[in-house]
Amino acid sequence: MREQTIKKSVELVGIGLHKGVPVTMKLEPLPTGSGIHFFRSDVGVNIELKPDNVVDTTMATVIAKDSHKVSTIEHLLSAVYAYGIDNLRIVLDNEEVPIMDGSSIGYCMLLEEAGIIEQDSTKKILKVKSPIEIKDGDKFVRLEPSDECVFDFSIHFPHPAIGTQKYKFEFSTKNYKEEIARARTFGFLSEVQYMRSIGLALGGSLDNAIVLDDTTILNKEGLRYKEEFVRHKILDAIGDMSLLGMPLLGAYISYAGSHKLNHLLTKKLLEEEAYEIVEIPQEYKLYDYELAKENA
């Protein structure tokens, strides 16, 4: 199995969820071995995707170089990871990735429009060797050795529309598009005033998030999946794990995980060297590249 990039550059315009400002985003192919990079064209700054560049995890994952940030990267990166793209330049003319509809399905469509091509280098994978865990009270995120890539997530919210939800996702591109990609971010009306007072959720609306009052969902169209809330948590977790810089082979298990705990987990995995880097056998069907190739 070879490294991948996109076949051609693609572009879209949207708004940022937290800052609410218009942003143009362009995806560009990069040579093999380059990795994922964000480029702020408005300030001329390149930011490499890696855990050490994370500067904030309050309601979103934020990376930065010097004082220049790129925020809310997790939904886009979740789709990039799901489509097996190793080398990519993400060009933005502002500090936040467009929110689209609050899920990652729009990014999936953009990647399929761009197409995917194989490159010369053999694809590597980060295989979990020993269990590691980050805890915060009863909340936790954990990685365990496994011969499959699995995301097993549980949440509980004392809200009649959510309650306790569990979902176990067995990773493949096809499964991701069908089971995870359409799950939207969510928030509570009671928290909106506070979030906006600290400069967050300024671009949030019923068009790009599930919004709940004290008892019900305010979106007239309802939910896209029965367990949409926990499925979106898996979407976020996949995006956050992409900061490791290569595909993950192991079981991710969480109760009430967050961007902060995910970030600490990636750092602990690397610091404790609880992994080995191996080549992916050609017959190992982690990605269904035909999804993008057929639409290229």
Rank of each mutant, 00 (worst) to 15 (best):
K65A: 11
P131W: 11
F38R: 12
R231N: 04
Q119I: 06
I15D: 04
G16P: 01
D207Q: 15
R184D: 03
K177D: 00
H18D: 05
K124R: 11
D101H: 12
Q193G: 03
I6E: 07
I125D: 03
A64K: 10
I238S: 00
P247D: 01
Y194T: 05
V141K: 01
D214M: 06
E144K: 14
Y83K: 04
L76S: 08
T32D: 15
D136K: 11
T164W: 01
P145E: 04
G203W: 09
H263W: 13
E227C: 03
A296D: 13
L261V: 04
G14C: 08
N208Y: 12
K26P: 03
S103V: 09
R196W: 03
V70H: 07
L126V: 03
I210Y: 15
R89G: 06
I134N: 02
G245Q: 01
G102R: 11
Y107L: 14
I73N: 05
A256D: 09
I162F: 01
T61Y: 04
F229D: 03
D213L: 09
I155P: 02
V55A: 08
Q193V: 08
I105M: 12
N87V: 10
K69I: 13
V55P: 06
R224E: 10
G199I: 08
D93G: 07
Q165E: 15
G203M: 06
L248N: 02
L269K: 08
Y289F: 14
T215K: 12
I6A: 09
V70Q: 08
E178M: 04
E283N: 14
A237F: 01
E178G: 00
I198T: 08
I36G: 06
V10K: 10
G257H: 06
S172Q: 02
L223K: 13
E191C: 04
T24I: 12
L17D: 07
N262L: 07
I210K: 05
L286Y: 10
E11W: 02
E179F: 04
L92W: 09
R196Q: 15
V43N: 05
T57W: 08
K123Y: 11
Q4P: 01
V80A: 08
T216C: 05
G204P: 07
I198P: 02
S190L: 07
F151R: 00
H75A: 08
E178P: 00
P160D: 09
S121Y: 06
V70A: 11
S172M: 04
T61V: 04
G163I: 09
H232P: 00
P22V: 10
G14S: 06
Y225T: 12
S172N: 15
T72L: 05
T61Q: 04
I280K: 13
I134F: 05
H75T: 06
D152M: 00
K129R: 14
I15P: 02
A256N: 14
G44L: 08
L264W: 11
K293I: 14
D101N: 15
